[in-house]
């Protein structure tokens, strides 16, 4: 790795760090905001989880180098995320569909 590469990396990591701190601030702030609409919880959930997903993307993409990772790793993770979605969504859908 050349010195220029390193400098570039370090700048990226610093920027990501700052961005993560801002997002943490936002997410805490958003939780305190009263959305003043009947379905305020849904709004807060949406905002909170969107920020969390964005933060997750920052960590995985930069610190874990997923942005420049090899295809085989991506394939494995796509597969995993698909099954994760099945695991998260289906029990909930099933729950909603229960015969009362």
């Amino acid at each position: 790795m050349s010195a220029k590469d390193v400098a570039h990396h370090v700048i990226t990591y610093r920027n990501v760090f700052i961005l993560l701190l801002i997002c943490t601030g936002l997410t805490v702030g958003a939780a305190y905001v009263d959305f003043n609409v009947p379905k305020s919880m849904a709004g807060a959930l949406f905002v909170g989880l969107t920020i969390a997903i964005f933060k997750g993307y920052l960590v995985a993409g930069n610190f874990m180098h997923l942005k420049t990772e090899k295809k085989i790793i991506h394939y494995i993770l796509f597969l995993t995320v698909f099954f994760l979605f099945v695991l998260l969504a289906v029990p909930v859908l099933w729950h909603i569909d229960l015969v009362k």
Partner: peptide
């Protein structure tokens, strides 16, 4: 070991809003 460590961080990023804030 770094990859593992970032993953632990990543999990916390989701735990924090789910358990404390929302």
């Amino acid at each position: 070991v770094g990859l593992y460590w970032h993953f632990v961080d990543l999990v916390w990023i989701f735990l924090f809003p789910s358990l404390y804030l929302l």
